[in-house]
Simulated scan of single mutants.
Amino acid sequence: MGACFSKVFNGCPLRINSALTWVHPETRDQYLLVGAEEGVYTLNLHELHEDALEKLLPHRCAWLYCISDVLLSLSGKPPQLLAHHLPGLFQRRRRPDAPSPLSRLLPRCPTPRAACGAAWPPPAAPPPTSPRWTGTPCWSASGAACGWWIWGGTPTPPWPPQLTFDFPVETLVCLPDSVLAFGRHGVQGRSLGGNQVTQEVTDESRVFRVLGAHRDIVLESRPAGDPRAPASLYLLTGHQSSF
């Protein structure tokens, strides 16, 4: 089965910086969480007929990451690195008298890069797991074509494959046996074994942007001729060797 964009929300007015999906450990409902200039919002992907984003947190959010039901966010002005216990946060949304699920990890954090170096996770939380693919991409571009050299550790003969894309690459998502390269108008996957195209989705009438690739790949899309139009939100489904 080839990759395809599955629309989960149409006409989103938010200015989104980051997004991810999360499964509630009790209800098993899957949620889309988006961090935007307007706050953190959530969408129950099992109830798409409602077609409504619900505000979860009120502060500006520049970055999101989730592990072991704990949501890390870079939120506020100036930015602060915060940890939110998601089941407690959803409970508090329905019961305002419930204990606060918020922990402040750093008093101030000017950039997402600094946040990545914070002392975390909290007690009893396992360390983040690394993707199975650990190679380091190095790239060079000439015109619209990009060539990516892929290897893990120190390369030795035979030399690693060169993955070639005939469009400017904006985001790479590395899978165990292939690489997904996202450009302005879609995505192309190429095998690490021989540079063969494994999947491709292109729509010249739309402009796509990857919002997150933790657990699921989340994208937003706008008409190519109207960059200020409300965005549609998508999940990439059907791609091979997904996380």
Results as ranks from 00 to 15, higher is better:
Leu33Pro: 02
Pro127Glu: 11
Tyr234Ala: 06
Pro223Trp: 12
Ile16Cys: 12
Phe208Glu: 08
Ser100Gln: 14
Val173Leu: 09
Leu219Cys: 15
Ala36Cys: 13
Gly135Leu: 08
Pro13Asn: 08
Leu72Ile: 01
Asn195Thr: 05
Glu26Pro: 00
Ser73Val: 10
Asn10Pro: 00
Gly152Asp: 15
Cys4Ala: 12
Leu57Tyr: 10
Glu220Cys: 12
Thr111Gly: 07
Phe9Asp: 06
Arg132Cys: 11
Ala118Met: 02
Asp29Asn: 14
Ala114Ser: 13
Pro107Ser: 10
Leu102Asp: 06
Gly2Val: 11
Gln199Cys: 15
Ala145Pro: 00
Asp226Thr: 10
Leu56Met: 15
Val8Trp: 01
Phe90Leu: 15
Leu53His: 04
Glu170His: 08
Phe165Asp: 02
Ser68Ile: 00
Glu200Phe: 01
Asp97Val: 03
Ala124Gly: 03
Leu33Cys: 03
Ser191Leu: 12
Arg113Trp: 05
Leu219His: 11
Pro25Asp: 07
Gly183Lys: 05
Arg190Val: 11
Ala98Pro: 05
His46Leu: 05
Pro87Arg: 07
Phe5Leu: 15
Lys7Ile: 07
Ala36Tyr: 06
Val8Gly: 04
Trp149Leu: 15
Pro110Lys: 13
Pro110Tyr: 09
Arg209Thr: 13
Arg95Asp: 14
Asp166Gly: 01
Leu82Asp: 13
Leu175Ser: 12
Leu105Trp: 07
Thr198Asn: 08
Glu50Arg: 15
Arg108Phe: 01
Leu163Val: 13
Gly186Trp: 06
Ser73Cys: 15
Phe208Cys: 09
Leu33Thr: 01
Glu38Pro: 08
Ala62Tyr: 12
Gly212Pro: 09
Leu81Glu: 10
Trp22Gly: 03
His49Cys: 06
Arg215His: 14
Val207Pro: 00
Tyr65Gln: 09
Gln162Asp: 09
Gly2Cys: 09
Ile67Thr: 10
Ile67Arg: 14
Gly153Met: 04
Ala19Trp: 08
Asn17Leu: 03
Ala3Asn: 05
Arg60Ser: 12
Pro112Val: 07
Asp166Ile: 00
Cys66Glu: 15
Gly2Glu: 13
Thr171Ser: 07
Pro126His: 09
Arg28Cys: 09
Thr237Phe: 00
Cys66Gln: 15
Trp149Asn: 05
Pro168Trp: 08
Gly212His: 09
Gly76Phe: 06
Val34Tyr: 08
Phe208Ala: 08
Ser103Glu: 11
Arg215Thr: 13
Phe165Trp: 11
Gly35Arg: 09
Val218Thr: 02
Thr129Gln: 13
His185Arg: 12
Ala181Lys: 10
Asn17Val: 01
Asn44Trp: 03
Ala119Asn: 13
Val210Ser: 02
Gly153Gln: 05
Thr198Cys: 14
Val34Thr: 14
Leu20His: 02
Ser205Lys: 13
